[in-house]
């Protein structure tokens, strides 16, 4: 069974189509990276899958469950990280992680050990018990990553994961994503960071003006665009006159 199936997904905001007929299938152990310029429809796509927007047309199925018919069950497979990391200002990082664990009903006997390990990997231990109102963007991003890994969802949706992260943490995050893929998780990532896409994606999508211009792997991308460098490929395909191959 496909982990994520999107059929003819469309979204209209105030009579403008933000997303035009998106079709996509993702399986276990895949990292799908969605590339596109600002306002292309990347965040809209992620929010639709996360259940934060209602589709105008089309359907989304997660683990065979229709998101519109049984949203609660479908969402139990999802972990979503928005582009603007948010933690309640008056909670500490630890409290936020535990809050998420409570909502997802995480009942892991090794919970505290696992949390300690992740705090170490993500280097959040020194300030995890301070109120998050004093955190920087990158610190919040790391706490959000930690909560995501604590509830360990099958389908990970991440909007711009590297924004605000220092080089060391970026590397750690990349390694974590690859590890998740190896564990059979599915990752749907939206980003502007082309090198990141080239390094970890098993499948790449390029979206512009709400329309998926391309979907395939790096080799197909190079072949269709006739260019080797991902930056050149991206610029060519995200151009209005770029090749449409779905």
């Amino acid at each position: 069974m496909n982990r994520l199936v999107i059929k003819n997904l469309r979204k209209k905001f105030n009579n403008v189509w933000a997303l035009e007929s998106l079709n996509l299938e993702l399986n276990q152990g895949e990292i799908f990276v969605l590339l596109g310029p600002n306002g292309a429809g990347k965040t809209t796509t992620l929010k639709l899958i996360a259940g934060l927007l209602r589709p105008t047309e089309g359907e989304i199925t997660i683990e065979g469950i229709d998101l519109s018919e049984d949203p609660i069950k479908a969402k139990s497979f999802i972990g979503y990280v928005p582009d603007e990391p948010f933690i309640y200002n008056k909670l500490t990082g630890r409290e936020f992680i535990n809050f998420v664990a409570g909502i997802y009903n995480v009942r892991n006997p090794d919970y505290e050990t696992r949390l300690a390990e992740l705090m170490d990997i993500l280097d959040i231990g020194p300030w995890i018990d301070e109120l998050s109102e004093s955190y920087s963007h990158g610190m919040k991003q790391r706490v959000i990553m930690c909560q995501l890994l604590m509830h360990n969802p099958d389908l990970v949706l991440i909007d711009e994961p590297l924004v605000g992260l220092d080089p060391k943490t970026s590397k750690t995050v990349r390694e974590i994503f690859v590890k998740l893929k190896d564990e059979g998780k599915t990752l749907f990532i939206s980003t502007h960071t082309l090198s990141f896409a080239r390094e970890i994606a098993t499948k790449i999508g390029i979206i512009n003006r709400g329309e998926l211009k391309f979907i395939g792997d790096m080799e197909e991308l190079s072949r269709i665009s006739g260019k080797k460098d991902i930056e050149d490929i991206y610029l060519k395909l995200s151009d209005d006159n770029g090749i449409v191959q779905r």
Binding site: T92, R94, E95, F99, V106, Y111, E112, E130, L131
Partner: peptide
């Protein structure tokens, strides 16, 4: 106010979503 908070209702995860929201 960068006080370090050692203990609170959510220092450990709760086993109930309703309780979690209430404590938050």
């Amino acid at each position: 106010n960068k006080k370090v908070r050692r203990k609170s209702f959510l220092y450990h995860p709760q086993r109930n979503a309703a309780k979690t929201i209430l404590f938050k």
